[in-house]
Design a protein around this nucleic acid. Structure first.
Lengths: 155, 155
DNA sequence: CTGCCTGCAAACTCTTTGCACGAAT
DNA sequence: ATTCGTGCAAAGAGTTTGCAGGCAG
């Protein structure tokens, strides 16, 4: 989905929910879709302010749930204390995250069996799965063996 | 492993690391092993205080890493804001968690393929897996269809 | 005009830390 | 006697919220 199509979807979602189309919400949307990587709320705030410097931290936190509910953004909580966000891509519910503990980079990998697993396991408990996540924490082999990582810019 | 064996393991771990065997640490240990369910740091504090009312919140937070490093306790972060802890059982690294969103209860299910998956995915990225987690969020079918859940005491 | 939305700052939750006293070795 | 460990309270990080004023519809 192109960014124009996504922006249109955002505007119609706002209209449909009776929410107002403010310049701040649009700036946050544009900031959110200007990056393909994972970012924190704080980073999103910085990006949004580069577009519209009137955007406040509070509005970022108030807008994030709207973007998530409209399926335009995905929230990724990998247990680092702060949450990460990422523009939603197709099939986004079936991805696993791999966190490199050396550089804190998050990689995403397709995990098509996850949904099946969630259903199988939940049904045994009389539950209906809502979402599932599969996360791997890992260390960089090259960094630990040769002292430097070809992917990491941090170390 | 019996609680006596676990307590012995805890004492020897402390000795081996040059850490002191204090009454507070023992009270926290006993509180941690007096429950089989998941509990929060706050709940652990309450249980520990029932055994030794001199235990403070700070000491609970300072003792938790020791219990985890010694593989006596497992930390479970299911994204509810606070972390949960549980006495470690055999094969504890290969369990998936199922969270009931209606009662916040955490169920654990054996997931023997998780470790294999972590290795497979990590190796493609030049990473070595350290740990992995598979978590399912689910709703209670009975509660939503019949208005009450046979498992939940909360609702 | 109406009332939703905003920025600001304070509040909040969970966890960590500095300090001086107290207890294990 | 040494230190390490402790309780207390304050600090910290990330996020949420109350309020008075501002802008979309």
């Amino acid at each position: 989905m192109s960014i124009e199509a996504s922006r249109a979807k955002f505007r119609s979602y706002l209209a449909q929910k009776g929410l107002r189309t403010t310049s701040q919400r649009l700036a946050i949307f544009d900031a959110a879709f200007g990056h393909q990587e994972h970012y924190t709320a704080e980073e999103l705030l910085a990006h949004a302010r580069a577009i519209d410097d009137s955007v406040s931290r509070a509005t970022v936190y108030r807008t994030l749930p709207i973007l998530i509910e409209s399926n335009l953004l995905r929230e990724v909580d990998i247990g680092l204390g702060e949450k990460y966000y990422r523009a939603a891509t197709a099939g986004g519910t079936q991805v696993a995250q791999v966190l490199c503990l050396d550089c804190d980079r998050i990689f995403e990998i397709s995990a098509p069996f996850m949904e099946w697993y969630g259903s199988t396991v939940s049904s045994k408990l009389g539950l209906r799965p809502v979402s599932q996540r599969l996360q791997v924490r890992a260390q960089c082999i090259a960094l630990h063996q040769q002292g430097r990582c070809p992917n990491c810019t941090k170390k």
